[in-house]
Amino acid sequence: MIRKLTDKDHEQVMDFLSVEPALNLFIIGDIENFGYETDFQQLWGEWQNDRLIAVLLRYKENFIPYAKGDFDVKGFAEIVLAAEQFQILSGKEEIIDQFDPYIPSKQKRSMYFAEITNRSNLEKIQTREEIHVATVDDVEAIFTLRENIEEFTASSASRDSMVHTIQTNSGRTYFMKDQGKAITSASTTAENSKPAMIVGVCTATNYRNKGLASKCLSALCDDVLKEGKSLCLFYDNPAAGSIYQRLGFNEVGRWTLLHKAE
């Protein structure tokens, strides 16, 4: 049976999701931040003999399913397709692949998913003076950096998102600068009581191959890990993956995004 989840289900939901907290980072974070029912967020659960076996989150136009075993894929797909807002279905690769017969997609992308849980391989930083924690006043400089990097797509919407993240303490950005300009940065987003997601790791072209991104990322990870959280990230570039692995990130699976067909 599939039904909407409410606050009364919270203990069972969190116990269910906490078995794989990194993979459920977004669901856990959105529940902690926004609860079970708003105009932009809802959650559904599938129950079998009073036991929760699957969860589906809608956050705005994005849907994330999670299950540990067999579940009613068709039933979840019907909920997703019934939503006018639906644009992206994402999650653990082996879960998203099961939706292929039910949801037509114009694009499917799979990325490596990695997690770090201890500080032992992080770079040892002698001084933090050159590494800054961004405030709202630094957002424009950081997006000027991103706009000049081919792999990044910076927009006013993502600017607003970074401002909101800083103001609500749901993420942080560490960066370095030279002559008043940001030259490398690394951010977290969707921070919650368990893991945090690393995003926006980048370095200006003229400053690459100097270890700046590793230093910035190490400082960020070190502080978050000291708080008793873990960190995770996505990557699809093997070169970037080797850097993350050197710092102590371990691959825990693949994450797939399925974009709605127009």
Rank of each mutant, 00 (worst) to 15 (best):
C221V: 08
E32D: 12
K194T: 09
H132G: 02
S120G: 00
Q12R: 11
L212Y: 15
G180N: 08
G253N: 08
F16W: 08
Q48M: 10
I79R: 01
A219I: 00
S156H: 13
H132I: 12
M1T: 14
T117F: 03
Q85C: 08
V224R: 06
A114I: 10
M162D: 08
S193H: 06
F34Q: 12
T38K: 05
F249D: 04
Q107F: 14
T6C: 04
P238K: 02
M197Q: 06
P101R: 02
T127N: 13
L43R: 07
S158T: 14
D100P: 00
K74F: 12
E84S: 14
Q245H: 12
V252W: 04
D15S: 11
D222A: 06
G241Y: 05
I96L: 08
P195D: 03
K215H: 06
G248F: 01
T38Y: 04
I64L: 12
L233E: 06
V139P: 06
S187D: 09
Q48G: 00
T189G: 01
C232W: 01
P104E: 07
V13L: 07
S161R: 14
L43K: 10
I2C: 11
F99V: 07
G228I: 09
E262Y: 09
G200P: 02
N206R: 13
I183Y: 03
I96C: 06
F40M: 06
E123M: 12
F40H: 12
V19A: 10
N192E: 03
V224H: 07
L231E: 02
A154M: 02
A114P: 05
F86V: 00
I27F: 03
A196N: 01
E37N: 12
I149W: 10
E32C: 02
P101E: 03
A219F: 02
A141N: 09
I79C: 03
M176N: 06
I166F: 01
A204K: 10
A157G: 01
K210Y: 09
K194W: 01
A77K: 07
E129K: 13
T135R: 11
E115N: 11
V199K: 02
Y112G: 11
V73Y: 03
S18Q: 12
F249A: 00
L220N: 07
E151M: 14
D50I: 09
N148Y: 01
Q245S: 12
E262P: 13
D39Q: 08
S90A: 15
N250C: 07
R246C: 00
A114L: 04
G200K: 04
A141L: 10
K215C: 01
L231D: 03
T6Y: 11
D39L: 10
D223M: 01
N192Q: 04
W44I: 09
Y59C: 07
C216D: 10
I183T: 07
I2W: 00
A213V: 05
Y207H: 15
S161L: 11
L258D: 09
K229V: 04
N148G: 15
L233A: 01
N121L: 13
P21T: 02
S110N: 08
L43V: 05
P101L: 07
K177L: 13
A240W: 06
I116K: 04
R128M: 14
A190P: 00
P104C: 05
L25W: 05
Y112L: 02
A114N: 02
